[in-house]
Amino acid sequence: MASSIPNEPLIPEDDSLAFSQKTKAAEFFTSLLHSWTGLLGVAIIFILLFLSIFGHWIAPYDPVKTELTAKLLPPLTDGHLLGTDHLGRDLLSRIILGARISVIIGLSTVLIAGLIGTVIGIISGFFRGWIDIVLMRLVDVQLSFPFILLVLIINAVLGAGLKNIIISLAIGGWVIFARVIRSEVLALREKDFIQAAVATGVSRFEILIKHIVPNLFTPMIILASLQISSFIIAEASVSFLGFGVQPPTPAWGNMLSEGKDFIFSAWWLITFPGLAIIITALGINLFGDWLRDTLDPKIKGK
């Protein structure tokens, strides 16, 4: 089809697009440099990841080795930077190793809950009809339960342990993903570019996979990053209540639980694990907020 149409309004190639040439990664990075809260969040997350991977080599003592002669030492005595607990275990080492539990639980729960929630949200939002009604009523019922209580009940049924706490948190946490993703899908369905795909003759399945799902990545990542911290806090609460991760495995939650008996005599036992939880949650939330501000055009737009 040799065109007889003179292609007159040819757009000059250089200037009109020159300014969008910057790669996405570079843009992303500069935006991070401009936000001190984002940077702080990233820094905390890096420290957390570093500790959870290399904790064994960094920890000055064996975190589970008891030494009753050196029990309840206050911070900065006998080479114990943060002191020791009632069994003489080094608190710093236990906190360092506890980071791994938090990271494992945070990441795997978000992965499982996110996956279940996203799939259900997509089904609900895309197919609508009775399946949407059934699934969303299920979500409503679950949301009328306090999250922690639900996790505790499931955990009580499944029994303690790392694997079971992950499963119970995931079962308790998928609903929020389902809700958010469903509303995203509902909004996307009405977009002109989806109508354009329908008008082109794209099949329903392909519209879902090729047009809707890629546009869900951004909200999914934002939501996941904001949810991780709430999962970590929930794990700590469950472990504190005696479910979840069991001693002697060091987890920040059960350290708090063990330390609460000594709250008046050995303040450091609950102060430092508590701080660890707070700083972690804060870091992840700061990062999540920054991510949302950067990625979400609805907020970013002028």
Partner: peptide
């Protein structure tokens, strides 16, 4: 009129409408 309106950051020397 051919072409597009330049963005403020694309303004070069000379007349703004020249291109």
């Amino acid at each position: 009129i051919q072409g597009q309106v330049p963005k403020p950051e694309q303004v070069k020397q000379g007349c703004i409408f020249a291109n």
